[in-house]
Design a protein around this nucleic acid. Structure first.
Length: 926
DNA sequence: AGATTCACG
DNA sequence: GACGTACGTGAATCTG
């Protein structure tokens, strides 16, 4: 028997819980939930393929009762039973472990952590290194010279430095610190009032817990001294609870942990039974490497560079013949991974540098279009000799683009990209169009929502166990960063071809999931067709009146100076930074001694607008400061910033819409954000007034009236609201009348305002606290309103319960178009977290449904306009509003088409109503 | 980098 | 009984 050299101890129980909460729900064909099993299986597959460990075990907890409950009955006693969907997964995870021919270890009366401690000790004593696969902080006490931890979900190693970062002390003192600060999630009491920071300080000062407790009388702070003296026993008990036992008799001898080669058939059978088809296909791809296991090699590389599952064959295309071969191959395949490389991130300014194509996994090429590799110093090289002459010669751009154009336009060849919006923008600048496209970013977004990001690198790590070449590795960072056209061709090829290759591989994995996971409709009718529409909107941009904005900036700047002087004067001439909430808090509540100060959760004085408004009754300073803040915000975020965003080539402002960013399916806008242009105040509207139409044109603003409340009425089937909407009258007044039992004519503005606030509250998953804060009334009063509302519209309560239940069962809720809005935290043991998730779940179908409807309208609008012979262009989307620019002579006809398309984008049990107007500026059109 | 504040729907 | 809350975003600024 060879002694172990590197032992892997996997915390199975810990992983199950994290995977369950961290991964979107998945079910086997028979309905058994398997998301944690899937996460576990991929994790183990990855670990085993990458590590040089020669001994591996997965360690589990058994029953809830352990020796610790004898010491302290409350230990972990408050934990709720595991979620129902998790229970069937416990045995399956053990099956998964056995499918890899890896040992499962567990023992009555001991936690997995104690077994891990024991095996780690045994391994270290026999001279081996140990890696504990877990992120559980309770295991951090075991870290040492030969023992490290590895967090399998964050791909992060935890050594002494990371432990010190977490606990403020080295691993040997972790137990003492935990004994003092306790652990709420395990019900370890600790010493009341002592948190992790204080505990670390105390242990650092006194060396260890026993010394500290013996000398507690010397502590200066009276409060701290007393609690320590009083709770010394509690600290000692806590230490017993957190200290892991390393002396458990080994249930399985160490030599049994020796790694055995995986039997692909056993593993394949298991994956097939669970419906893990993506893993199955990966197994098949990996068939040769598995037949000759990576870990059989004694000097296997460490985990940083996982072996690629298939051999890669990346070709740098420099001749017309090669280019033609690749294009022919792509055409024959009918599907091609596609990516562009450019000189920058802004697609309107970036230059195309090269294009990569992938025709099969591992088979890809890079076609340079315009490269300017760095010239050797001092060599201007006009004579054709020297280093530059040795650089490979690329095809003329006109030839390359000429050959690519028909491929891109060919509707029978599917171009698969990742965030194709970007590539389409760049190509559009060269007059190239793409027909027939799929976007892996959008596929990932509709399938997995916000459970993880949708960047190419992240998806490759997640689904393909592959770490892409980093952009920074190719182009450098900071001052030494170069644009892609300066990168040597071989390096550029390796990077660019990989992106196209990985995109195609992701597509093979993600596209088939659409059908199983019922996402075909959302992807095909809402997401994919929106891409070219957004491309056009972004490229077109909107005109802003530069002179008007600059004049506003100056005006705001002058008034800011005046206001600052006034505020300083009101602070007895004492200068401070008006933009610093911290300094302002001191001025208000310490210098001026104003009452009613609240603290934020970090212990700072809260100085939000609501606080300042309250204080305005007592002192002139807060009101001045509010004015200052408003102008400072408008100047820095809008007037100054927007002028800087004007594209010199077009004279217009071009925002960027994120298509895969929000949890609910909405778009978001950035660089600059044109979805939060001011409107609520008079000063703010001046900024909106600077968004204008070109000469001879008009801006048209068309917005859905009350679309979210209409969706509530429809989705929750609220009869009272439905009839109210059908009548076409003022919805908030009708609500007020129905809820408060007053005839509509008798509704005063205050009552209407309350009804309006409740209507909004419903959309947000109402709470008495939230409504009270909104209306400035007591919680109790808010509750009576909500009760009255529920009494009048009983269907709303049923909807809320139904939606929460849907979220608990599935892990997501759905919109009327079938979009999934994931609801992480819906089963969190923390009540506040859970309540938050519940409100988000209630809001999901409403906000998401409205997002679906306007997306559908946006997709239909361009065709509808051109069929009507209208030249109008869509410029902006602001969630429930579309902004268009139309020739002056066509405004009425355009409004008619826009209204028809928007109102007809969905057929609900309540009418969809659109308000639309045309004017010279956005302010007047809205 | 995180917290705070505030602009929008 | 206390806790911390309205839902969803992005940008600027201060601070450690």
């Amino acid at each position: 028997m060879t002694p172990p050299r590197h032992v892997f101890l996997v915390d199975g129980s810990g992983f199950i819980f994290r995977a369950f909460h961290g991964l979107p729900p998945m079910t086997r064909p028979d309905g058994t939930p398997v998301n944690a099993v899937y996460g576990f299986t991929t994790m183990l597959m990855k670990l085993l393929s990458e590590t040089d460990a020669d001994h591996v075990a997965v360690v589990f907890d058994t029953a809830r009762k352990t020796f610790r409950s004898d010491i302290y009955p409350a230990y972990k006693a408050h934990r709720p039973p595991p979620p129902e969907e998790l229970i069937p997964q416990f045995p399956l995870v053990r099956d998964a472990t056995r499918a890899f021919d890896v040992c499962c270890i567990e023992m009555e009366g001991f936690e997995a952590d104690d077994l891990i401690a024991t095996y780690a000790r045994a391994a270290v004593e026999s001279g081996a290194r140990v890696t504990i696969v877990s992120s559980d902080k309770d295991l951090m006490q075991l870290v040492g010279a030969s023992v490290e931890m590895y967090d399998p979900m964050k791909y992060r190693s935890i050594g002494e430095a990371e432990v010190r970062e977490k606990f403020g002390v080295g691993p040997d003192k972790v137990v003492d610190v935990q004994a003092l600060c306790g652990d709420a999630s395990d019900n370890v009491p600790g010493v009341p009032g002592i948190g992790i920071k204080t505990a670390a300080q105390l242990i650092s000062d006194y060396g260890d817990l026993d010394t500290l407790l013996a000398r507690a009388g010397e502590i200066k702070q009276p409060k701290r001294r007393e609690t320590l003296l009083e709770n010394a026993d509690l600290a000692r008990i806590s230490r017993q609870l957190v200290r892991l036992r390393a002396d458990v008799p080994l249930p399985v001898p160490m030599e049994d942990l020796a790694v055995k080669p995986v039997n692909p058939e056993t593993l394949g059978a298991f994956c097939a039974a669970q419906g893990f088809r993506s893993l199955l296909s990966r197994l098949k791809i990996k068939a040769p490497p598995i037949a000759e296991p990576v870990r059989a090699a004694t000097a296997a590389p460490t985990s940083t560079a996982p072996a690629s599952p298939v051999t890669t064959d990346y070709d740098l295309v420099l001749t017309e013949a090669a280019l033609d071969r690749w294009i022919a191959e792509a055409t024959k395949a009918g599907v091609v991974g596609f990516d562009t490389e450019t000189t920058g991130l802004d697609p309107l300014r970036a230059q195309l540098v090269g294009v990569s194509l992938a025709v099969a996994p591992g088979r890809a090429c890079y076609i340079p279009v315009t490269h300017n590799p760095p010239q050797a110093q001092g060599s201007l090289d006009l004579g054709g000799s020297g280093p530059v002459a040795d650089a490979p010669k690329i095809l003329p751009a006109a030839v390359t683009l000429g050959r690519l154009t028909p491929l891109l336009a060919d509707p029978s060849v599917l171009k698969v990209g990742h965030n194709l919006k970007y590539d389409m923008q760049v190509l559009a600048g060269l007059g190239l169009r793409i027909e027939a496209l799929d976007d892996t970013m959008l596929l990932s977004y509709v399938l997995d929502g916000a459970s993880h990001g949708h960047g190419l690198d992240e998806l490759c790590r997640l689904h393909l166990d592959h770490t892409n070449i980093a952009f920074s590795e190719v182009c450098g960072t900071g001052k030494t960063q170069v644009t892609f056209d300066r990168v040597p061709l071989d390096k550029a090829c390796a990077y660019a071809a990989e992106d196209a290759d990985m995109t195609l591989r992701l597509h093979r994995l993600l596209k088939p999931r659409l059908l199983n996971e019922r996402m075909v409709t959302v992807y095909e009718t809402l997401e994919r067709p929106l891409v070219p529409v957004i491309v056009e909107m972004e490229r077109h941009g909107i005109k802003v009146d530069r002179a008007a904005l600059m004049a506003l900036s100056e005006d705001f700047g002058r008034r800011l100076v005046e206001l600052e002087a006034e505020v300083i004067a009101l602070n007895n001439g004492e200068a401070f930074n008006l933009g610093s909430p911290q300094q302002l808090g001191k001025v208000l509540f310490e210098t001026l001694n104003l009452p009613g100060g609240k603290k934020t959760k970090t212990g700072q004085w809260a100085t939000g607008a609501d606080v300042l408004e309250e204080l305005a009754h007592l002192h002139p300073l807060p009101a001045r400061l509010l004015d200052w803040r408003q102008l400072a915000k408008l100047k820095s975020t809008y007037t100054d910033a927007l002028v800087a965003e004007i594209n010199p080539a077009t004279g217009r402002v071009h925002t960027s819409y994120a298509l895969a960013a929000t949890t609910t399916g909405r778009l978001s806008s950035s660089d600059p954000n044109l979805q939060n242009i001011p409107i609520r105040t008079e000063e703010g509207r001046k900024i909106r007034h600077a968004f204008v139409a070109e000469p001879g044109h008009r801006l048209i603003s068309a917005d859905y009236s009350q679309i979210e409340l209409r969706l509530v009425a429809h989705v929750a089937e609220i009869e009272g609201l439905r009839t109210a909407f059908a009548s076409g009258a003022d919805i908030h007044a009708i609500t007020a009348s129905q809820v408060f039992g007053v005839p509509v004519e008798g509704i005063d503005p205050a009552l209407r305002r309350r009804a309006k606030a409740i209507n909004f509250g419903i959309i947000y998953g109402i709470s008495a606290f939230g409504l009270a804060a909104q209306l400035g009334i007591s919680n109790g009063e808010a509750k009576t309103y909500i009760d009255a509302y529920f009494a009048r519209y009983p269907e709303i309560r049923a909807y809320m319960e139904r939606t929460k239940e849907e979220a608990r069962t599935n892990g997501f809720v759905t919109t009327l178009f079938g979009r999934k809005v994931f609801t992480p935290g819906i089963k969190d043991k923390n009540g506040a977290m859970r309540a938050f998730a519940e409100r988000a779940a209630i809001n999901g179908p409403i906000q998401g449904g409205a997002a679906d409807i306007i997306k559908r309208a946006m997709i239909r609008l361009p065709d509808a306009l051109s069929q009507a012979g209208l030249a109008a262009r869509m410029l902006l989307q602001v969630h429930d509003e579309l902004v268009l620019e139309a020739p002056e002579t066509e405004t009425d006809a355009t409004i008619a088409v826009v209204r028809r398309v928007m109102e007809g984008a969905a057929s609900l049990s309540v009418p969809l109503v659109v308000d639309a107007r045309a004017a010279l500026s956005w302010d007047e059109a809205h």
